[in-house]
Simulated scan of single mutants.
Amino acid sequence: MKKFFSFVLVLFTIGYASAQDDLLNQLNAEKTDVKDKEKTAFKGLQICNIQSTKMTAKGEWYMVISHRFGNLTEGLDNFFGLDNALTKIGGIYGVTDWLSLGASRHTYNKIYEVTAKYKLADQITNGFPVTIVGYNTMDINTALSTDLYPNLQFNNRLAYSTQLLASRKFSEGLSFEIGGVYVHKNLYDDAQELKDQYLVAAGGRCKLSKRLSVNLDYAYKINQLENAPLFQNPLTLGLDIETGGHVFQMVFSNSQPMNDVAVFTNATGKWNGGSLYFGFNMYRVF
C-alpha cells in the first residue's frame, strides 16, 4: 500500500512518464542486487572432513550418513578396512537462510554431536570479497565409564569446537576456504594433547565436470605438544559427485573419526607410510 500511494503522489506531481522511468530503474536495481550475490563456493556442506561455507536453505532438511572404513594399508587382514568401519548418522535443519542446526550420532566413542552453523557475510560480485560462516559443535561422549573413571561427571563427557570460515569463489571451477579453529576438551590425554588447541584450516574445490569436483582440506595445529607424535594434522582428499537430490562425497583421510573435535585433534594416520582411511559422506535434502 505504501508503494501504491507513493506512485500516485509521483504521478500527480511529476507526471506519468517520469514515474514509469523511476519504477523501471528500481526494478533494474533490484535485479542487479540479486545477481551481485555469488553462488555458493562449494556444493557440499563439507569440503571433505572440514565444514564448507555452504548453508542449508530455510525449511530444508538434510539427512547425513557417513562412513569411514578401517585402515586401507592392512590389506586383506581387515578386507581393506571393511571389517571395522565407523558410522555417522544425523540430520540438519535450515532454521533460516543464515542459520542451521544439526545433530548426529557417531559409533566412535558413542558420541552425540550437536551443531550450529551461521552465515555472517556473503561474497558479492565487485563488492565484499568472501563468504564468512561460523560453526560450533558440542560432543557428548557416552562411551566413558565410571569403571575407568570412578569420579566421572557429566561435564567430563563434553568437548567443543568453534570455527570461523572464510571462502572465495574465484570462478565456476575453483573455490578456496581458510579458517581458524579452537577445540576444547574437558577430558583429554595430557601426555599427547592439550586441553585447548588452536588450528589453521584450509581447503579447496576444483571442478572437473558438471557433476564432479576434486576437493582437498587440511588443518595445522598451532600449539601441538612436542614429542607427542600420536596425533597428526588431518589431511583429506575427496571427490564430489552430484546426483540430483544429494551430493555424494568419496574421501581418503588420515582421520577415521568424523566428529569435528576428533578430526582436528585425534587423527592418527599418516599419508607418508601410515594408516589411511577410505569412506564417504552422503547428504540427502528434503
Rank of each mutant, 00 (worst) to 15 (best):
24 L>E: 15
24 L>G: 01
26 Q>K: 07
29 A>L: 04
32 T>E: 15
32 T>Y: 07
33 D>H: 03
33 D>A: 11
36 D>H: 09
37 K>G: 02
37 K>W: 01
40 T>F: 12
40 T>N: 08
42 F>K: 13
46 Q>V: 13
50 I>G: 02
52 S>D: 05
54 K>W: 08
55 M>T: 04
58 K>W: 10
61 W>Y: 08
63 M>W: 08
67 H>S: 15
68 R>Y: 08
70 G>Y: 04
71 N>A: 07
71 N>H: 07
74 E>A: 05
81 G>E: 06
82 L>M: 02
89 I>P: 00
92 I>N: 02
92 I>V: 11
97 D>K: 05
101 L>Y: 01
101 L>E: 01
102 G>L: 00
102 G>S: 06
102 G>F: 01
104 S>G: 02
105 R>W: 14
107 T>P: 11
107 T>L: 12
107 T>R: 12
112 Y>W: 14
113 E>S: 06
122 D>F: 01
122 D>G: 05
125 T>G: 07
126 N>K: 12
129 P>G: 08
131 T>N: 10
132 I>N: 04
132 I>C: 03
133 V>N: 04
138 M>S: 07
143 A>C: 07
144 L>S: 07
144 L>V: 13
145 S>I: 14
147 D>T: 14
147 D>N: 09
148 L>V: 09
151 N>R: 09
154 F>S: 09
155 N>L: 10
160 Y>M: 01
